[in-house]
């Protein structure tokens, strides 16, 4: 069986899945809107967690949170199910497909064989939509690639029951009720979304937001002395990899947020947001410059300690810029 489902590519998986599921149900909402209303933007350094033997830095909120906040703020009810039993998980998925209901799934990216080998790390917070089943093959709409794909039953089971941090436990989710298009409180939802992002980015917690960026900047300076050039390069590479990972990333997220501010500016009739959108674009460019500079370092393994200071300085500058930006944004929506 195959549900008539339209696949749209997006820059980031979670927004993309939600956006595609909304569009399927007749609600035309763009990816940046979902990202903004769901307050997806953040910066967080997670000290005790190691990913691939390197530091964990995230540029977006916890998996599932964008979507949870978005649904709450615009009044869509979603159903979410997790499973202990593999058989039960499969049965529920098949039932939904039989009922013509495409579902969102949380999966481990390592088991998605249709992605290039280079992207297959043990990262469990990837999202896809399954929109049908033909024989043994599930039809998959993965929003980060251009076309649709397939996974056979065994691969699907592995992906749904991937293990490690953020293990998906076979999680599926789908909308069950919608508000009327005219009842959707877009304006309030946008304001709430922006307020929360400002609060997160300016949070008085050393590892979160602007303070988190500063903390990582300090660490970058220390790494070559404390850990040696090789490890420092690995760590730095890891930060860039997390920043620019397929379709996501620090620079990329800043652009999506800028697109959101632009769209919001029209809806809220607020000129200031348009200016701030341009500002955010400039900041996004600076994040890319940072990644470029960092890549020069980890490309040649003979970097000197001094060159780390430069990259660290760039990050400090970004922190200052973002601090001013989010303070202004907070005032602009009052």
């Amino acid at each position: 069986m195959k549900i008539d489902f339209k696949h749209h590519q997006s820059a980031h998986c979670e927004n993309g899945v939600v956006s595609n599921l909304m569009k399927h149900n007749g609600l035309n909402i763009s990816e940046p809107m979902i990202f903004g209303i769901g307050s997806g933007l953040i910066y967080c350094y997670i000290p005790f967690l190691k990913v691939n033997h390197g530091p964990a830095v995230t540029y977006r909120v916890m998996p599932g949170l964008i979507f949870k906040r978005f649904a709450k703020r615009i009044g869509v009810t979603f159903k979410r199910e997790k499973f202990k039993s593999v058989a039960k998980a499969k049965q529920r998925l098949d039932e939904n497909l039989k009922n013509n209901n495409p579902v969102g799934l949380q999966v481990g990216i390592y088991h998605l064989l249709y992605l290039p080998d280079h992207y297959r790390f043990h990262f469990n917070a990837h999202n896809i939509v399954v929109y049908g089943k033909e024989g043994n093959n599930y039809l998959v709409s993965d929003p980060v690639i251009e076309t649709v794909a397939t996974l056979d039953e065994k691969q699907m089971e592995k992906a749904r029951f991937a293990k490690g941090p953020f293990a998906p436990n076979g999680q599926i989710y789908y909308p069950i009720s919608f508000p009327k298009e005219s009842d959707i409180p877009y304006k309030e939802a946008i304001v709430k979304g922006i307020k929360q992002t400002c609060r997160d980015m300016l949070a008085p917690i050393p590892i979160v937001g602007v303070k988190g960026i500063r903390m990582v900047a300090k660490l970058i300076k220390k790494w070559p002395k404390k850990k040696g050039i090789k490890v420092a390069n690995h760590y730095l590479g890891q930060i860039v990899r997390m920043q620019e990972e397929i379709g996501t990333g620090g620079g990329g997220f800043r652009y999506i947020f800028a697109a959101f501010l632009q769209e919001s500016s029209a809806i809220l009739n607020n000129e200031k947001l348009m200016e701030l959108s341009k500002e955010m674009t400039v900041i996004g460019d600076l994040w890319r410059d940072f990644a470029l500079e960092a890549s020069r370092l980890y490309k040649n393994r003979k970097a000197t300690t001094g060159s780390y200071d430069k990259v660290s300085e760039m990050l400090f500058e970004l922190a200052d810029k973002e601090e001013v930006f989010f303070k202004t944004l907070k005032k602009a929506i009052k």
Partner: peptide, 9 residues
């Protein structure tokens, strides 16, 4: 820059 980071990893 991203490709290098992935290759290094």
């Amino acid at each position: 820059p991203k490709t290098i980071a992935l290759n290094n990893a």
